[in-house]
């Protein structure tokens, strides 16, 4: 544990990241945007309320809006932070030297991911005081807040692993970034759209009472839908009823993304350095 915390690559990444003023400006900008939106929401609600009161149900709506917005920002920022971790070292020509050190491939990959995510975690946790505004007005339980933060971390891991894999496989940072954004947007927006479209083709379920599982399957592997279901459980319950199953969508969700995280990191570790195995020398041609 101690050696993992004192990992040189992680140590270097964190030192270099926080030596730049850009990092702090990034946090300030992020909190500024979230703060403006929160205060704007409160201001607008108060201006439209005849009694000038901010009610618990409005506080809950505000919380949902900030949470979904924060999730969108996490999905949007993570590729930018992770899809260049290896390819940028390659572009700066520092990678060959790093690869000839005694650091293992897994240590390099995991440290790079951890350092990028630690910055993102700092951003997300720095926004915690904004969330506490809802406690002033009520309407949300602390468990919901904890669950939403846990899902942010999990989402970062999913998108971050994809970013690190693309950064390892694709030589140019810009291409790695575009690919990561494409995959991340498909997993979040794309699958959500597919799930919604499939929900519209539910004639069989309503006309013949046949189980219709596909919207449930797609929704249970979609991050925004599952995130929303933390606060509005009825969404998934309805899809479960349609599918005729009581199987928890969270199991499908964690298995699906657990496999993606593990698969991406495993491939990245294996592809970071060349396989040194050689072919046997071909037989000399006769004659």
């Amino acid at each position: 544990m101690k050696s993992a915390l004192l990992n040189p690559v992680l140590n270097k990444e964190i030192r270099l990241r926080f030596r730049s003023a850009k990092s702090f400006l990034g946090i300030a900008a992020y909190l500024g945007i979230l703060g403006l939106i929160s205060l704007g929401f409160i201001g607008m609600t108060l201006s439209f309320d005849y009694a000038g009161v901010f009610r618990p149900e409005e506080s809950r709506s505000m919380f949902l809006m900030i949470s979904m917005l924060q999730l969108a920002l996490v999905i949007f920022i993570t590729p930018g932070l992770t899809a260049g971790v290896i390819s940028s070292e390659r572009e700066r020509q520092t990678l060959p030297i790093l690869l000839t050190t005694a650091q293992s491939s897994s240590s390099i990959i995991l440290s790079k991911l951890a350092s990028s995510l630690s910055y993102l975690l700092l951003i997300v946790f720095a926004s915690a005081p904004l969330y506490m505004i809802v406690f002033l007005f009520g309407g949300i339980s602390p468990v919901s807040i904890l669950a939403s933060f846990a899902l942010y971390v999990f989402t970062m891991l999913v998108v971050g692993s994809i970013g690190v894999l693309m950064s390892t496989l694709i030589r140019r940072t810009i291409l790695a970034m575009v690919t990561t954004y494409s995959v991340a947007f498909f997993l979040t927006g794309g699958i959500a759209v597919i799930a919604m479209m499939l929900t519209n083709f539910n004639y069989a379920y309503y006309s013949q009472g046949t189980d219709y599982i596909w919207p449930y399957v797609f929704a249970s592997v979609n991050i925004p839908v599952m995130f929303f279901s933390v606060f509005e459980g009825s969404v998934m319950q309805e899809l479960q009823t349609m599918a005729g199953t009581s199987f928890s969508p969270w199991i499908t969700f964690f298995i699906f993304y657990g496999v993606i995280i593990a698969g991406c990191l495993l491939i990245a570790v294996r592809k970071l350095r060349p396989r040194m195995k050689t072919k046997g020398k071909p037989a000399e041609k006769m004659g």
């Binding site: 060959p96 000839t100 060349p274 040194m276 195995k277 050689t278 072919k279």
Partner: peptide, 23 residues
């Protein structure tokens, strides 16, 4: 330097084969 695998053949450094003991 163990940064590239040969197509055929091998190399030894200090008695260690680069294709078998890169670490």
């Amino acid at each position: 330097a163990t940064l590239m695998a040969p197509t055929y053949g091998t190399a030894y450094i200090n008695g260690l084969e680069v294709t078998k003991d890169p670490e």
